[in-house]
Nucleic acid binder design. Sequence first.
RNA 1: CGGGACGUAGCGCAGCCUGGUAGCGCACUACACUGGGGGUGUAGUGGUCGGAGGUUCAAAUCCUCUCGUCCCGACCA
Length: 569
Amino acid sequence: MRYSRFFAPTLRDDPADAEVISHKLLLRAGFIRRVTSGVYDFLPLGLRVLRKIEGIVREEMARAGAQELLLPMVQPSELWKKSGRWEKYGSELLRFKDRHAHESCLGPTHEEVICDLVSRELRSYKQLPMNLYQIQSKFRDEVRPRFGLMRGREFVMKDAYSFHADEASLQEEYDNMFTTYQRIFTRLGLKFRAVEADTGSIGGNQSHEFHVLAESGEDLIAYCSHCDYAANVEKGISTRDIPSFADASLNEVETPGMTAVEDVAKHLQINADQLVKTLIYQVTGGDFDGRMIAACIHGDDVLQEIKLARALGANEVELATDDALEAINSIKGFVGPQGLNCKILMDESLRNAVGMVAGSNKSDMHVTGLSISRDVEHAEFIDLREVRLDDGCAHCSEGHIKHARGIEVGQVFALGQQYTKPLEVLFQDHNGKRATATMGCYGIGVSRLVAAVIEQCNDDNGMIWPLSLAPFQVVIITMGKSETAMNASEKLYQNISEQGIEVLWDDRKERPGVKFKDAELMGLPIHVVIGDRGLDADAIEIRQRAGSKQEVPLNAVIENIRNILVGAN
RNA sequence: CGGGACGUAGCGCAGCCUGGUAGCGCACUACACUGGGGGUGUAGUGGUCGGAGGUUCAAAUCCUCUCGUCCCGACCA
């Protein structure tokens, strides 16, 4: 490609509305342009990288035995009603009516459509297992799109769906996909970590997320300093020191105006961990839809709302309003577990607690000497607390919990029969009986990966693409505009192209500095610098974006490039 | 949805408070010089000041509404 004809509008300044480095560089280097919030054009450079990533994903999916197909973006509401997600998915699902007033939506994910397809074609267990995938644009009407390609509303995703005759087969494929994902992210040159994850609105029994480690990541990962345990904090577990206090009789104490844990603790001269923090939530969805529930944790713990919602089978939980507290017999700031007119969930760590302090459900009063088993009726104990930094590891007992930020670029789910049942994906098993298929699904955020790679591979001058992902492997920078230099450059450009190497020839009539800056901004890996000076000395400069630099005779340039390309593979 | 900021040329911004000829840098066009790290000069092109309404002799500027964008939070395969 000749730069003078190439559509790659670069910017000298950072665009005002870009915050993270990948977003800034993608805009500055002319890879993408914004159309509307969370929706982007992929310009030629951006598309080239996207296609490279897709290519690697395709190769590894093929190696894993999956088959590519392409499903529609527009989906009929009927399928979503059948799975129950028409109601459940919420406003992230972009819904609309066609000219016949038929309700449809843009696919945010494709469990319904693939189940519909497979249910109509699957007959025998002999056809199983089967893994089908696509690489396609998804649309999710995110509440808050941000950071360019990191969280768009329209984005490119690789989504795979596997179908199985039994759980063992699903587990096998889950492991297969897990390994495949590790291969893919390794090939992409990423520092990443697989972590245990909540199953979210997709549902299912088991799930892992793959996170690219980066400060700009939106997710918080908890991992063990000693063993290989790692989990999203939404799901992570840890051990904490459970303080033991002397059992005592129940007493009421005056705590005027002290509604915060710290105030009460200070007043009573105790640590926050002796308090029981009681939070009242309004539940949406599931068996407790529309009701309020109480959740209790130690005063120095943070409640993990995703865990709470999951335990209740709810779509979401939201802190109850002050007024609502009266309905369950309590009062703002002095909520406690006793005598509440609602279901009470307590963190495991409180199961045998005695001598605790809690709200009394009366204004300006707390209780001391609270014994959970003696004084609280009908409490259920589950894991509700969020893992804290430096907590003990629940898996190895030697390590401690550390935190890292991550960009979620992939997730694998063992779904079980959550979709195959309502959508009736049935087959005849080896006994000739009708059975419901078991399912897994596996996603990779392909366009998000473009941003994730940049987050990890950049410097002050711009992007630094690995050879396998670069939009062009080589850029020829012609210095000056002498005929000799232009002719030599053109010849080299043609020769390199003929080798099947992707090369951009910067034939613009620009000053050298401009060309260097642009080549570096775009992060092209190999820069060949040709000017009269080098030609006269027969010493052509070959630079690598990542660092090194050498001079070689003109007729050895191609061989040198080949060596670099091979060496990197 | 709550909180905050912003919208003036392709990009980055000033002007607004205190109403009176729409500006600067970069980019772009032409010419000249220059030619190994975003060079210099001369002359140019390009703007319904996001939109609508109002106040006023007069609105980018003041008022009301509205649309859009970004950030924080809530939310999120």
